[in-house]
Every structure is written in C-alpha cells, then in structure tokens.
Write a protein that binds this DNA or RNA. Structure first.
Length: 634
DNA sequence: CCCTTTAAGCTTTTT
DNA sequence: GCTTAAAGGG
C-alpha cells in the first residue's frame, strides 16, 4: 500500500535543492514553458516534478505521466532518474518515450482506425533515403517547389526532409502542381509498396499518420488524454512542425497539463527543421506560463560570466545567472590560443593535455575536444600527437551506434561477467535483460528467477573456459555467436525492432567482434579490452551538436575560424548558439584555438580568416575574463 | 572533347 | 564558403 504525501508537505527527494522557479514549475497546475539554460538541472527538474505528481497522488492511478524526448538516451536517462527518485512502483506510471516511438506506438496499435487510403499494412519497413529516391526516380519528375519566394529547385534530400511531410494528412485533394502530385504519389507508393519495394515509412511520415489517426478518431484521442494527465516535453526548442502538430492534436484543448522545457540559447537544430518561433507559438496555443531558471550548477563563475555576455548577444535578455556555492568567485579559465599553423597547435594542445593529466586530478574522460564539424580533419594531428604520449583520444561518433545498442551492451556485459563474476552492475543488468527476454515480471515466482540465475552462472563458467583459449578474431566471433544463441536469435529479433531484419544482427556481431578484437590484441585482457572499447581511458572528440547535453571539466574547442563556421552569414544566430553550446559544456576550463593555416577535409592547407568570427572575439573580450594567448608572431 | 555551370555536402535522430 | 563530381553547351 502506497502512502501519499500531502501537497504542502512534499519536498524534493534525495536531498535535492530546487531554486524558486524550479519549485514553482514543479508545483504549478497550468501549462508552462521552463527556460532552462546550460547546467540548470533540466532532467532533475522533470524527475522531481514526476515525483511530486506521483507521490502526492495528483496523478492518481491509473493516470500516467508522458514524457517525450528526442533521443533514446535522453528518454532513458529521465526514466532512470524518476525511478531512482521515487521508486519502482510509482515510476511505472511515468512513461518516457521519444517522439518517434510515441508516434509509432499509436500507429501500430490503432492501425485499423487510420482512414483507409492512408492505412499502412501491419508489417512495414522504416524507409531509407534510397527507397524514396528510387521512387522519385521511378516517377521521373523534376521537382520544383513553389514557395513564398517563387519556384525553386528542390534536392532529393530536401524533398524527403521537408516536403514529403510538410503538410498534415490527407494530402491535397486536388493537385495544384506537379510536386503536390509527386508528394501524393510517393506517399501512396510507400504506404502500399511496389512490386520492388515493401511498404516503407519514414519516422516523420509515421508521425503524420499518428496525428491523422488522433484527429479523425475523437474516441482514441479522448482515451489518450484521459491516460496522460501530465505531459513533459524535453528540449522543446528543437521541436519540428511535424512533432508540434502531433502534440497539438493530441493535447490542445484537453485537461492534460503540459510542461515544456528548453533553452532558446541552445537552438542549433534550425537547419534540420526546428520551428522558428516555437516558444511563442506554444505559449499562445496552450496559454502556457513562462518560468526561467537562473541557476547554473555546472560552470565556474568566470565561465558563467562569459556565458552571460554571449547569452545577451543571442536573445537580448539580461539574466542574472547564479553559480553553485561549491565554486570560488575567481574559479574558471577561458583562453583563446592563437597559432601560426596546425602543427604548433597540436604540439601545444597535446603538451597541455599531458600536463593536466599528470598534474591535475582529472582523467581523460574529464576532457573533451570539440570542433564545429568535420571532427576528423580538425583533430587528426592532435590525436596523433597524443598517441605518441600514450594518451588515447577518439571520435565518439564512430562507435556511438555500436556502444549504445542494447544487444551490444548485453554481449559486453556477459563478456565482463564471464571473466569477473563479481561485477555487480553487469550482473543486475544481465539478469534484468533475461527476465525481459523470458517475459518474467515482478510477480513471477522467485524459483523461476533463481533457476534463471543458476543457468546463467553455468553458461558464464562455460564461456570463461572458452575465453582462455581464444587466440584469434574468428574464435571471438564464435563466442559472441554462442552468446547470441543463448539469448535467442528469434527472441532478440522479436524484442528489438532494429533486428527484425537479421542481417542487422549479423552486422552488429561483425562490428563488435572486430572492434573488441582490436582492443584485446593490444591489452591481452578481456575486461580491460571491453573497458577500452567503451572508451573509459579515451579523451572524447565530437561535434558541437553531439556535445549538447554533456559536460566536461575541460573543453578544448579546435578551430575558431571562419572556415569552421562557413554558414555564419546565413545563420549568424544559430552559429552564435553553437558557440554558446560549446562554451557552456565546460565546468572549469574552456580553451578555444585558432590557427592561421588549416588543412581542410579535402587535404588542402588554406589561410584562415577571423573576419566573421570577430563577433565571438569581441564578445569574449567584452566579458573581460578571457585571456588571449598567442603562440605566434602575429 | 573541353570548358563552364550547377548540385550537393558540411552539423542529426528516430522502432 | 569552398570543394568535388556530375551535367550541360558549343
């Protein structure tokens, strides 16, 4: 029996302290938009709000909270935080999904209620770019698109990204031009398939179908609104029109209470279709109240001082951001490092990193190397230089998909467990996975679980002896295949949709085998090899976009040059935001490098200019806490 | 065939 | 903004 807390007596769990605006946002009964800058504790705020609603029974059983994020790991993080804060039982009614999984669930579950001419078959693929391109080629049409600026040619990529799902369903009853006809044709072919193409839908198409479904079925819409009394919307500044239309149809005019969280200063997804004026649109549509968090728990005071200046340049607002008490007033380092060429840049950067790792209490994972884009070209010399000093650094994007895959994680956990029976975290994760694979839940009999654990132990012992005789890549692959067989190939493909097509699973096995073997052949120890593969001893290198949401003690931004910000003239605001995102990843130290000469991704060395980026420099000097260090005769 | 013009990629996620 | 590759014109 759960005992509920009186609303007035509710306090944040686990000793968390919320600032006033956060406390307001938790307790408010109205739709709201919470502006949460970097380090404001966005995830914590949403987790605490979920706890408040569940623990005080403001969200009574069987009603639920729906949280919608963009990325799987954001959705998972939030769910984990809620479970940690208010326990397993209550957190069952906290449903954390991505936009696309929310949409796909609706479409798959209520497929038969979708109007017939837009009803997809029970089995359909996720359409690839090539699938749609083949259709466009099949209809053999030019695809000029008319917009407010007149007729303009549209690339295939643009057609798929922006035009195929530009409007709500149903698509124009009468075709005004050849492109509307083409959009209709492509939709029809993708839903019904062609002789050479199984029915295939893109995620934005699925979202449009979900919206159409809800709009044309008031009873389903009503049921959804009754189920989800509270709705959280994460990273709201990145919302696309397709996603917003779905949210509007689902919840506008209902009693469901929406809490959107976002930061207009971190809008760096405009180019990918994020809505221009989403905060105001939402405020008007949902009569949402704006709250603004003013704490930055992450960055040191001197870094926050710079962030304030950039922030003001972005939106013209002056906010008195407060820093965490753990810092001294003078904490925080920000420097611009100017070099003649990349070679000098690499030397100084590598030397500094080496010194920091030796003399300061930080590990490789506390440092991050960031570039605007083309990460490999900007970091090539630095990676080579670090390698000479036995320091590892790597582009996170290359292994990200592999390492975030649930099946890959399970395999790596099992490999660790078979070599170290004491690994508690891995044990819990693997047992949970097996319970899921076998369809057990918390009500399952204790004996069943004990049987499962004993059987697993037996398997791990068998594996261990195999590992002792593994001497080449092929033998490692055999072991991984045995693990897959033990998990059950068909069970995997049934539970993890990405492996419905088994060739994806075989590709994963190949990928994992070669990457793990590469690590093992260097360290000759399985546990260490898994850890190296996970990158626990590597300095991460990534784009600004990938770094969003992450934090590091030290951030080295490589290449503060016009060449790196090639779109500055077209999207000054967005590039300023990108600069803000990169800067605000740093807890204590932010370094920006500039090189007069830079080799681009086509391997040509060019003179770099600062004419446009001067804007950044001027802002940095205005903040009066940035030191400019020249390693050159400029 | 050669020279000029034009398109597309850079930055991303999702079952 | 700057590159490469493909397409277009004479």
């Amino acid at each position: 029996m759960i005992r509920y807390t009186n609303c007035d007596k509710w306090f944040p769990s686990d000793g968390i302290e919320l600032e006033d605006a956060a406390y307001d946002s938790v307790k408010t009964d109205t739709n709201c938009i919470v502006i949460a800058g970097p380090g404001a504790g966005k995830t914590e705020l949403l987790a605490q709000k979920a706890c408040y609603l569940l623990e005080t029974n403001k969200c009574p059983n069987p009603q639920k909270i729906l949280a919608i994020s963009f990325k799987k790991d954001a959705a998972r993080n939030l769910a984990e935080r809620v479970e940690k804060r208010c326990g397993k039982e209550l957190s069952k009614r906290f449903i954390s999904r991505t936009y696309y999984s929310f949409a796909k669930h609706l479409v798959d579950h209520f497929r038969m209620s979708i109007p017939e001419n837009y009803r997809p078959p029970a089995e359909y693929n996720i359409a690839s770019h090539d699938d749609i391109e083949s259709l466009i080629k099949h209809y053999d049409l030019p695809h000029d698109i008319e917009n407010e600026y007149g007729i303009h040619e549209v690339s295939t990529t643009e057609f798929i990204r922006f035009y195929l799902t530009k409007n709500m369903l149903p698509i124009y009853k009468e075709y005004n031009n050849i492109n509307e006809w083409l959009i209709g044709k492509v939709w029809h072919s993708l839903i019904n398939g062609e002789s050479w193409l199984t029915p295939s839908l893109t995620f934005p198409m699925i979202s449009r179908l979900a919206e159409y479904l809800l709009r044309s079925n008031p009873s389903i819409r009503k049921a959804l609104r009754m189920t989800y009394k509270y709705v959280f919307l994460d990273e709201f500044q990145d919302t696309t029109e397709v996603q917003y239309d779905l949210v509007k149809t689902a919840f506008l005019g209902s009693n469901s209470i929406l809490t959107a969280v976002g930061d207009d200063k971190q809008r760096i997804m405009n180019w990918a279709g994020a809505m221009e004026d989403i905060f105001n649109t939402y405020k008007n549509d949902f009569a949402a109240v704006q709250k603004e968090l003013i704490m930055n728990h992450r960055s040191a005071p001197r870094l926050v001082a710079i962030q304030k200046v950039i922030s003001h340049a972005i939106n013209g607002r002056v906010t008195d951001i407060k820093t965490n008490k753990k810092w001294n007033r003078e904490d925080g380092i920000c420097e611009n490092w100017i070099f003649d060429n990349e070679k000098e840049e690499a030397e100084i950067v590598c030397g500094s990193i080496k010194t920091w790792l030796e003399e300061e209490d930080i590990s490789p994972r506390d440092i991050c190397i960031i570039a605007k884009q083309n990460v490999d070209t900007y970091s090539k010399l630095i990676v080579e230089g670090l390698k000479l000093n036995n320091i590892k650094a790597r582009n996170e994007a290359n292994l990200q998909d592999l390492l975030s895959d649930e099946v890959a994680q399970a395999i790596l956990n099992i490999i660790i467990l078979s070599n170290d029976k004491q690994a508690p975290v891995q044990w819990v994760e693997v047992v949970e996975l097996f319970k899921m694979l076998k369809g057990y839940d918390d009500d399952s009999k204790e004996e069943k679980i004990i049987d499962l654990e004993m059987e697993l132990n037996k398997f791990l012992v068998e594996l261990k002896s195999s590992f002792e005789t593994t001497a080449n890549k092929e033998q490692l692959k055999e072991i991984i295949n045995r693990i897959i067989k033990y998990l059950g190939e068909s069970i995997i493909s049934g539970i993890f949709p990405q492996y419905k097509n088994l060739s994806n699973l075989y590709k994963l096995i190949d990928d994992l085998t070669s990457n793990l073997w590469k690590e093992y052949s260097e360290v000759m120890d399985w546990i260490q090899a898994v850890n190296e593969l996970k990158g626990v001893n590597s300095i991460p290198i990534m784009t600004i976009h990938k770094s969003k949401g992450l934090e590091y003690d030290t951030v080295i931004f490589v290449g503060l040059e016009d060449g790196a910000f090639w779109s500055f003239r077209q999207q000054q605001q967005e590039d300023m935001c990108a600069f803000f995102v990169a800067l605000s990843r740093a807890k204590r130290r932010a370094i920006f490098t500039f090189s007069n000469l830079r080799t681009d991704r086509f391997n040509r060395t060019r003179i770099q200019s600062r004419a446009q980026i001067r804007t950044f420099y001027d802002l940095l000097s205005e903040s009066q806490v940035v030191d400019e260090v020249a390693f050159t005769e400029m």
